[in-house]
Computed example of a mutant assay.
Amino acid sequence: MRRFRISLLTLALAACAFGAQAAGPEIETLAGRARDLFDYGRWSDARQEFLRVRAALTPSDRLLAQEAEFYLAACAVELGSPDAEGALREFAERYPESVYANDVRFALGSFYCAAGNMEKAREAFGQTDYKALSAPRREQYDIRMGYVEFAGGDYRKAYDYFDRIGSRSEYVDHARYYKAYIDYAEGRYGRAKQAFTTLLRSDAYRDVVPYYLLQIEFREGNYRYVVENGEALARRAVPERRAELERVMAESWFRLEDFNKTLEHLAAFRKSGGEMDRDASYLEGFSLYRTARYAEAAEWLRKACGAEDALT
């Protein structure tokens, strides 16, 4: 499952008005442009502007200097800079009473989340005062904490975080995808199918969604849907996923009693790296038997035998 990266939203500027008292109008205009660039997600341009702000400050511009330092650290997070963590921790040490202290903890959590260090992300987010965040940043906190819990295997907590994301949010597709996956993994196929179908319109997820829809239709016994839609998916799938698709199509053709097609897809399953377990060996052996290839069938049916269970 691929990892996705979520950008920081607009940061709280509680000290902005006070910093402007010390700074001149020209420097405040420059700082305002830098903030706007940051808000629009133009991290590199924002960083350059905040570097200009910092270079133009006088010793009396203490609050604006603090703001610039914070934004430079936040830009480092967004740009994936290797010194982002150090910049945030240095800021926290230099300005322990800063109005940005909560934002720093949040930014650290975001950095660790993007870096895949979920334990540290959980720790930093746990130290963040959720209620002190602005509404947009609480939304971002929820999507990231949802991902942290999802990666840790706690689907219930993850679902609760993703469920907080509103239908008008820029993160709605991400939240919908992970909720749909959790529903799918826990057997709530109707709800999962509804969400995955909606995601067919998503630029981020339209390519992966048909795979899950095919699996759901298979589990619901809609074998004709599987054989009619599986071929196109298998052709463009990576080997591991292709093996799964070929296995599903093989069993679907088996259920539809086309045993030559079953054998064809089982061969493709093995070619893609799939391992023949007892169930697959039974499908192979029975299909060979039904196509009058008895000697080959006997060999595969022996492999399907094991403990004294229903299959044996």
Results as ranks from 00 to 15, higher is better:
75 C>Y: 04
304 A>C: 15
116 G>A: 07
144 R>G: 01
101 A>S: 14
271 K>R: 14
89 R>I: 09
264 E>M: 07
37 L>Q: 13
244 E>H: 03
193 K>E: 14
233 L>Q: 04
231 E>N: 07
106 F>A: 02
278 R>C: 03
157 K>Y: 06
102 N>E: 13
238 V>D: 14
170 E>F: 08
1 M>Y: 10
180 A>H: 06
85 E>P: 04
2 R>C: 00
199 L>A: 12
43 W>H: 10
98 S>K: 06
257 E>D: 13
201 R>Q: 10
61 D>N: 15
140 Q>R: 13
212 Y>W: 10
20 A>D: 13
109 G>P: 01
216 I>H: 06
29 T>M: 07
303 K>H: 08
125 F>R: 08
299 E>N: 08
94 R>D: 15
5 R>Y: 10
258 D>M: 01
74 A>Q: 02
39 D>S: 10
52 R>I: 01
181 Y>L: 14
306 G>V: 05
94 R>W: 12
183 D>M: 10
258 D>S: 01
133 L>T: 06
115 A>Q: 12
117 N>K: 06
98 S>D: 13
222 N>I: 10
119 E>T: 03
79 L>W: 00
64 L>I: 02
210 P>I: 01
232 A>N: 05
47 R>G: 12
10 T>G: 10
122 R>D: 14
168 R>C: 09
53 V>Y: 06
91 F>G: 05
172 V>Y: 11
232 A>D: 11
149 E>L: 14
115 A>C: 05
4 F>K: 07
188 R>T: 02
39 D>T: 08
232 A>F: 02
101 A>E: 11
158 A>E: 06
69 E>R: 11
229 N>Q: 11
19 G>T: 03
69 E>Y: 05
235 R>P: 00
194 Q>V: 13
137 R>Q: 09
264 E>L: 07
154 D>T: 02
286 F>R: 13
203 D>T: 07
31 A>R: 13
16 C>D: 15
122 R>A: 12
103 D>Y: 09
54 R>S: 15
212 Y>H: 07
222 N>Y: 09
152 G>E: 11
158 A>S: 12
85 E>L: 04
156 R>I: 09
277 D>I: 03
156 R>W: 10
87 A>N: 11
147 Y>W: 12
235 R>D: 05
44 S>T: 13
90 E>R: 14
13 L>C: 09
